[in-house]
Design a protein around this nucleic acid. Structure first.
Length: 213
DNA sequence: CGTTCGATGCACT
DNA sequence: GTGCATCGAACGT
C-alpha cells in the first residue's frame, strides 16, 4: 500500500529521514523489484546551491515545483538516471535523492539489468542497488518515470515495518556548492550504503543521530 | 591501498 | 560551449 501524499508534503529533511527503512517498489512488464531505502540526500529549494532549483524554474527542474509524492528523474553525466522524490507543498522546489537500497524483491531481475548495462556479473546482493546510478539501473527506473505519481501502483513507496537502525547525517556526496550542509542521511552499518560511512575512513564528519542535522 | 580520468547526453548559459 | 547530485577501470604509491 503506497505511502499517502501527506507523507511527502512535509519538511524535506524530515521526509529524507523517514524514508530510511521504507520500501521502494517498481512494477514494470510483470517484473517487480523492491528494496529498502538505506541512504538519501535532501535538496532544499532555491536557496540550496546544490539543488537544481537554485537557478529558479527551468524545463528540467519543473517537477520539483509540482505536487509532492511525484518522481523527479533526470539523466546525469549522460550515463545515469537519478531518482528523486518531490517533497513539501507545491511551489516549494524540494526533493530527496535516493542513493542506495537494500534489495529485497526481484534480485534476479536486478542482476540481469546490471549485467546488461555494463557487463557487471556476479554482483553480491548488497552491491546491486549501491549508488544512485546503480539503483535506477537495477530498479529499471528511467526518464520515462520522470513525474510519475508515487501514490499510484506502478512506482511507489510503502512501509513494510522494516526495523530502522541508527540514522547518521553527513555532507552530501559528489557536489561542490552547498557541500557544507549535512543533508545526506543513511542507516549506519548497512552494507548497501554508498560512499563513506560514519566513523569510516576519512572521518568527514558524519554524525550519528536520530535527530535532524 | 590511493588518485585520476574517460564515457556519454543534455540542460542551461 | 560548459558543466554536471556517477561509475569503475586504470594507473601510481
Amino acid at each position: 500500500m503506497p505511502l499517502p501524499r501527506s507523507f511527502y508534503a512535509r519538511s524535506t529533511l524530515d521526509v529524507a529521514r523517514d524514508l530510511l527503512g521504507k520500501v521502494l517498489v517498481h512494477r514494470v512488464r510483470g517484473a517487480t523489484t523492491a528494496g529498502v531505502i538505506v541512504e538519501a540526500e535532501a535538496y532544499v529549494g532555491e536557496t540550496d546551491p546544490a539543488c537544481h532549483a537554485a537557478t529558479g524554474p527551468t524545463g528540467r527542474n519543473r517537477p520539483m515545483y509540482g505536487e509532492p509524492g511525484h518522481a523527479y528523474v533526470y539523466l546525469n553525466y549522460g550515463v545515469h538516471f537519478l531518482f528523486n522524490i518531490v517533497t513539501e507543498p507545491a511551489g516549494h522546489p524540494c526533493a530527496v535523492l535516493i542513493r542506495a537500497l537494500q534489495p529485497i524483491d526481484g534480485l534476479a531481475t536486478m542482476r540481469r539489468r546490471r549485467a546488461a548495462a555494463r557487463g557487471a556479473r556476479g554482483l553480491p546482493d548488497h552491491e546491486l542497488c549501491r549508488g544512485p546510478g546503480n539503483l535506477t539501473r537495477a530498479m529499471g527506473i528511467t526518464i520515462r518515470d520522470n513525474r510519475a505519481d508515487l501514490c499510484g501502483d506502478r512506482l511507489f513507496l510503502e512501509d513494510r515495518g522494516v526495523p530502522s537502525g541508527d540514522v547518521a547525517w553527513s555532507p552530501r556526496i559528489g557536489i561542490t556548492a552547498g557541500a557544507d550542509r549535512p543533508w545526506r542521511c543513511f542507516l549506519v552499518g548497512t552494507p548497501s550504503v554508498s560512499g563513506w560511512h560514519a566513523g569510516g575512513r576519512g572521518g568527514r564528519g558524519a554524525q550519528a543521530s536520530r535527530n535532524l542535522p
